[in-house]
């Protein structure tokens, strides 16, 4: 077998193979021998080895749990839409019919092209996409309603996050979020529910749920978070509820100050 005569260019390429562990032993020996006689190139390549090795220490972050939940919902929706669309599959029947005669095939092709050109508007794909999108949304909703019942707080956080991702909410979703905000035993789940409800600020039901929730909360953390939410949403109707809360003698002192300040700011809006 003829050996390649090494030059700087080939040596560099071999070096890159060496860095990824793809250079065989024989070539490695040849390469190092060559570099021994070419100290300048050797120095340059050693530097690239150092930086290549250092790059191995650059840490890569991980995604949040929401990514998996979103994927699962998307796949469920896609599979459901696909199954529904393929319930009546005319394609094999047509293929069989067309394959019986080339004349029929040709005629079908011409007819199909004409139909495609003149009759069928460019909206079939749009319609399918819209159907798929609705399907995905329904699946997300179903998944949310299932996850919210789970005993693990993490699962319930996934549920309320999914609820916050829906492009539009219905009363059932808002109800579930309200129930979670008011009754979930875990504060993180309740905070996540608050965040999701805020995304539906343009629904009067969601705003009303948030306002009613004020006097139901006993956790200082949630009370303070709702106060912030009301300011962000500029919800003046929350003033009465805050005042009811302020009348409670057991109210945390820090929260009390925060609520007084919130009421003042809301009155100025």
């Amino acid at each position: 077998m003829n050996k390649l005569i090494l030059n700087d260019g080939i040596a560099t390429e071999w070096w890159m193979d060496y860095l990824t562990g793809e250079l065989d032993r024989e070539k490695e020996g040849e390469l190092f021998q060559y570099l021994h006689g070419h100290p300048q190139l050797q120095k340059e390549l050693k530097i690239s080895e150092e930086i290549w090795s250092d790059l191995g220490e650059v840490s890569v972050p991980g995604p949040s749990e929401r990514m998996d939940a979103k994927f699962e919902a998307m796949l469920l929706g896609y599979v459901a839409a696909n199954e529904r669309n393929s319930a009546i599959n005319w394609l094999p029947v047509l293929q069989d019919w067309v394959s019986r005669s080339w004349r029929v095939g040709l005629a079908s092709l011409i007819l199909g092209s004409a139909l495609g050109w003149f009759v069928i508007p460019d909206t079939k794909e749009d319609r399918q996409l819209a159907e798929l999108s609705t399907e995905v949304q329904e699946m997300k909703k179903m998944m949310m309603l299932t996850l919210i019942e789970q005993p693990k707080a993490q699962e319930r956080i996934r549920a309320v996050s999914l609820a916050g991702d829906l492009p539009s909410a219905d009363l059932r979703v808002i109800e579930v979020l309200a129930e979670t905000l008011n009754r979930d035993e875990n504060l993180n789940v309740r905070l996540a529910a608050l965040e999701s409800l805020m995304k539906y600020w343009d629904y009067s039901e969601a705003r009303s749920v948030l306002v009613k929730s004020i006097s139901l909360q006993d956790s200082p953390l949630i009370q303070a978070a709702i106060a912030d939410a009301m300011l962000i949403l500029r919800e003046k109707s929350a003033i009465d509820e805050f005042e009811k809360l302020l009348a409670k003698p057991e109210l945390n002192e820090v929260v009390k100050e925060k609520l007084q300040l919130t009421v003042e700011k809301l009155q100025q809006i």
């Binding site: 260019g9 560099t12 390429e13 070096w15 890159m16 193979d17 340059e44 290549w52």
Partner: peptide, 11 residues
């Protein structure tokens, strides 16, 4: 390979 090498140098 050449591009990776040059990029490492630049880096």
């Amino acid at each position: 390979k050449v591009r990776v090498h040059r990029t490492l140098k630049e880096l």
